[in-house]
Each structure stands twice: as C-alpha cells, then as structure tokens.
C-alpha cells in the first residue's frame, strides 16, 4: 500500500508506480501510451529501437528499461520527442523494403500502425532498396528479411521463452541481419515450429505463418479497428490485471 503513494511526473500528470517498475510500465498502467517497437510488454525489454525514449530530469532514457523513481520529471509527449520518433520510424522504413500495398501483414503491423499514429505521410529520407534474402523453405513459416526492423524480439523470445535459440543477429550496423540456427542456415532445417512464440510475436511481417495471410480481410484488421495506442494500452492493462489482480 505505501508503494501506491510513490509517483513521478509524466508530462502534466502524476503517475503512480510500484517499486522496480519501469517508466514505460507505470505509464501504460496509468493509461498513457508511449510509442514502442522493439518492446512487447509480454516479454523482457531490450531498449534498442529508442522509440520509447523519454526525457528524465533533462536527459534521454529508454522508458522500457528505465526504472521509475519517485519525484522524477519525465517528458514524453513533447514536439521534440514526437519529431524524433517520426524520424526513427521513417529511418526504419527506408532501410528495409517495406511495401505496405504488397504486404500481407498490412493492418496487423506495428511499424505501420506506429507510423499512422505519428502522422507520417512519407518516408522523407532516400530509400535504401537493400538486397535481402527471403527464406520460404519451411512448410509453415516464412522469414522475409525485407520487412525485418531488427527489433530482436524473435531472438529474445526464442532464447528465453521457446528455449530454442533459433534466431540470432549477425553483422554490424547497416549490415546487421537475422540468421537462423541450422546447418543450412534455412528455417526448414532448424528446430522452429509454427507454435513458437518467437514466430507469433513478430511486430512486422518478417516472420509469418503461411496460409494465414487473409484470415482477416483488409479493413477488419487489428489497427484498422483501433489505434495502436488504444489497443496497446488496453492489452497492457488486461495483462496487468491478470498478473496483479
């Protein structure tokens, strides 16, 4: 109970938090959305995409890993941070091959939904048009590296939840890519399966189940129905309620 008295200031609101809770979790529990892509609140945070960056007492921190501290002053919804989030999202779009009109993840995609909500009409920067490999070798799963944003969720989930270590990242900087742990380097020869959480939780269309593409028609999809922020906060609060009652 005394914990519930602890608060920090987020923009113009006092936000309560539990000891050890991150700024991100406390904000989402209070119904305040902070944009994020590499983080899925159901799994351990990673703080690599920097979309959830907030200013804490004048310095930038990734809110998904930064613990909340009583009395700290946090800024999130400022023009500068919104601009930074737009730039980061546009850079993610141009460094891959994100062809929304031709993508079966369209409408379920968190990169797309994030860009919608940040009000991004174009990519602004020069497109890289990189050459990346598509791995369609597996009978039930496709790995389309063109759409990968290197958030590392599949790597983390395969390691810590599926206990398989199917995915890893290799290369550095702009040459970073997802690789598969199998003798041939192909999904078909790996231990991956269609019920792996690593496959089911890809935020973009990089890892997808085959033959499921049009189960839900365009227009009726997750982010056709709700804003990413609303959907994300609602799911977070439902999970919290389950965990903590």
């Amino acid at each position: 109970m005394p914990d519930s008295k602890k608060t920090f200031q987020l923009d113009d609101r006092e936000v309560p938090f539990r000891e050890g809770q991150t700024i991100f979790d406390a904000a989402m529990a209070a119904g305040i959305f902070i944009p994020h892509l590499c983080h899925n609140p159901d799994f351990e945070p990673h703080s690599s995409c920097r979309l959830c960056t907030v200013i804490v007492n004048g310095r930038p921190f990734a809110s998904c890993t930064q613990p909340a501290v009583a009395g700290q002053m946090v800024q999130s919804n400022t023009p500068e941070l919104r601009d930074m989030r737009r730039m980061l999202t546009q850079m993610l779009f141009v460094e891959g091959n994100h062809n929304c009109p031709g993508c079966i993840k369209s409408g379920h995609c968190r990169l797309q939904a994030t860009a919608y909500e940040l009000g991004i009409p174009d990519n602004h920067y020069q497109q890289f048009f990189p050459l990346r490999e598509v791995d369609a070798s597996h009978p039930g799963i496709i790995l389309d590296r063109d759409r990968c944003i290197l958030c590392g969720l599949c790597v983390r989930i395969s390691r810590s939840v599926d206990k398989k270590n199917v995915f890893a990242m290799t290369g550095r900087g702009i040459d970073t890519t997802i690789v598969v742990d199998s003798p041939s380097g192909l999904l078909v020869d790996s231990t991956v399966s269609v019920d792996d959480q690593a496959v089911l939780n890809c935020p973009v269309g990089a890892l997808m189940l085959k033959r499921m593409a049009f189960d839900v028609p365009f227009g009726d999809r997750t982010y056709d129905q709700a804003l990413y922020s609303e959907d994300s906060v609602a799911r977070f609060q439902a999970t919290e309620a389950n965990r903590h009652g």
Partner: peptide, 18 residues
C-alpha cells in the same frame, strides 16, 4: 504533390529493384 505509395516509395514497381 506525390500521390500514392508508388510516388512516395516506388511501391509495387520498385519490387523489381531486387
């Protein structure tokens, strides 16, 4: 004004860039 995804990103025709 760039109108539509092809004008903005190259779109479907740009899939030949591979």
């Amino acid at each position: 004004v760039a109108v539509g995804e092809c004008a903005a990103t190259g779109g479907v025709p740009a899939m030949r860039n591979h």
